[in-house]
């Protein structure tokens, strides 16, 4: 079963065509890593899947339900309902700074009536344990390191038992020594068969964890294949050039 399906999705900001016919499908349990140069539309594609950007054309289906079909969106209520089955993790965490970690996790499921307070607190405790932050439930976000914040953000998204998790450069805002703890949590999700789409510049991580790697370039998916096909033996000069910028920065880092 396809958990996420994009067919010929287009999106422009004014005259800037950012997505120029993106098609992608992600099976249940599959892990897709998205790589590509800055400005190629990776974030826009993910954001469109959770309704943060409205696309101009094409179809987006989440777990078999259309959010937009041939450029026509479903009604707002239904759209919200469909999108709320999708977890999203942002580069800058976007924790709610005025609440402690537990309340960050419990707010949405309780307000939406999905869990009562007690059940939510129990679930929060389990998930915090899972991301290695069992002792941080009462901490405020400002007291956490970047890596800890991102792990809280992941736990917060998991509170809603999503069908699929989308990650937009989850480690790009972190100091290098803190990326490992976040990647470890994501490996844990992979072990639980979570369906994931991960936009990342961590090439080694992508090679490890992904079932499939897609290379976005200029608003289209230029290449798609196994990590070996895309990363070990890059078939195009564009991709080779892109990957070289990483090996160079990896060496200098």
């Amino acid at each position: 079963m396809e958990m996420l399906k994009l067919i010929n999705v287009t999106k422009s900001f004014g005259t800037n065509e950012v997505l120029r016919g993106v098609s992608l499908s992600v099976r249940r349990g599959e892990i897709v890593a998205v790589i590509g140069p800055s400005g190629s539309g990776k974030s826009t594609m993910l954001r469109a899947c959770v309704g943060l950007e409205r696309v101009s054309g094409g179809t987006i289906e989440l777990a078999g339900r259309a959010l937009v079909r041939d450029g026509v969106y479903v009604r707002d209520r239904e759209a919200r309902d469909i999108c709320s089955r999708t977890g999203m993790v942002f580069q800058h965490f976007n924790l709610f700074p005025h609440m402690n970690v537990r309340d960050n996790l419990c707010l949405a499921p309780v307000l939406r009536g999905l869990l009562d307070k007690k059940a939510a607190a129990e679930r929060a405790a389990e998930l915090l344990y899972k991301v290695g932050l069992a002792d941080k439930a009462d901490a405020m976000p400002s007291e956490l390191s970047g890596g800890q914040k991102q792990r809280v953000a992941i736990a917060r998204a998991l509170m809603l038992s999503p069908d699929i998790m989308l990650f937009d450069e989850p480690t790009s805002a972190l100091d290098p020594e803190l990326t490992g703890e976040v990647l470890t949590v994501m490996r844990g999700l992979a072990a639980d068969n979570m369906t994931m789409v991960i936009v990342t510049h961590e090439i080694a991580f992508a090679r490890d964890i992904a079932d499939r790697v897609v290379f976005m370039d200029g608003g289209v998916i230029a290449l798609s294949g196994t990590p070996a096909e895309i990363l070990e033996d890059p078939p195009t000069e564009r991709l080779r050039a892109f990957l070289r910028t990483f090996s160079r920065s990896a060496q200098s880092a």
């Binding site: 959770v50 943060l52 999708t86 977890g87 942002f90 976007n94 709610f96 707010l107 998204a157 809603l160």
Partner: peptide
């Protein structure tokens, strides 16, 4: 706002 929206608030 984006985090709130994605969480379905």
């Amino acid at each position: 706002y984006e985090a709130a929206r994605v969480l379905g608030l």
